[in-house]
């Protein structure tokens, strides 16, 4: 563990977060005792019941929130504010309807340095880059369409492009494929897999979908609900590159089943009575 911590890209040491001082005084934490070491280029997935603090974890990892207790280091540096080396995408694509798809993808470059200062001068070059990225995710021919002319799956692809355009070292995805139909979802898994294989950024994928987490991730963490803790860490030893067919193999389903067992146990022991959905 200690040897890993020294080279780790993401390093959480006993991190606790309460959203405000009253909750802190009352001992009500959104996440508790998070210890996590992620190697450079590692793809991790976090699964758990809704409301278990997965989104809180995202805020901590991007520096949008500081921890109440504990230490977070990312890329060797203590986190003190928003981390520009990260890109984010959510379940809702939240593209701007008055911008074309390519202009939506360019938005981060208008904001983040060093691109911001050169944006006017190098616009052509950046646009070329955005178009290439869009073509890579299968949106060739849709670059100049408006987001509302695109299907949900296409919008989500564009949203992922927007998260990646400034070549972040860390990609955070909060249930990015949750609203898509099963076939589109599997298609996007493969696109994400290919992008990651090619560029090897770190990925933190928050999801409800166990098959998704096992197919994509190197390591899957299971989170419990209130308190929000990491209760299980599962290395996925399936060989890469992984094709969709692997999801129908015995090995794969065994892992999914095992994780499902952990989730089921959490839900049973959870002190909070859940409303039926």
């Amino acid at each position: 563990m200690t040897a890993g911590a020294q080279t780790a890209f993401i390093d959480f040491q006993d991190v606790w977060l309460a959203y405000n001082d009253e909750l802190f005084a009352a001992g009500q934490f959104a996440v508790e005792a998070i210890d996590l070491q992620v190697q450079p280029g590692e793809f991790i997935a976090i699964v758990g019941p809704s409301g278990c603090g997965k989104s809180t974890f995202m805020k901590l990892a991007t520096g949008l929130r500081g921890p109440s207790r504990g230490r977070i280091r990312i890329d060797g540096q203590p986190v003190t504010g928003p981390l520009k080396i990260s890109g984010m995408a959510f379940q809702a694509p939240s593209l701007l309807p008055w911008r074309t798809t390519v202009d939506n993808v360019l938005l981060p470059l208008e904001i983040v340095e060093p691109y911001r200062s050169n944006f006017k001068r190098k616009r052509k070059e950046y646009e070329e880059r955005a178009r290439k990225l869009l073509q890579k995710v299968g949106l060739a021919g849709y670059e100049d369409k408006f987001p509302w002319q695109l299907s949900g799956g296409m919008q989500q692809r564009a949203s992922i492009c927007r998260a990646l355009i400034h070549e972040p070292k860390m990609l955070l995805l909060d249930e990015p494929f949750g609203a898509l139909d099963a076939f589109t979802r599997e298609e996007l898994w493969c696109i994400l897999r290919d992008l990651w294989t090619e560029q090897r950024f770190n990925v933190i994928l928050v999801t409800h979908d166990l098959r998704e987490s096992v197919f994509l991730a190197d390591t899957v963490y299971v989170m419990s609900k209130s308190p929000g803790r990491f209760v299980v860490k599962k290395q996925i030893e399936l060989p890469r590159p992984r094709e969709l067919e692997i999801t129908y193999t015995r090995e794969f389903t065994d892992i999914v089943l095992e994780l499902r067992g952990h989730i089921g146990a959490i839900r049973k022991t959870s002190p909070v009575v859940e409303a039926t959905p």
Partner: peptide, 12 residues
Amino acid sequence: EPELEDVLRVLG
């Protein structure tokens, strides 16, 4: 949308 604000704030 709070999510979009997060996307932008992370970028500084």
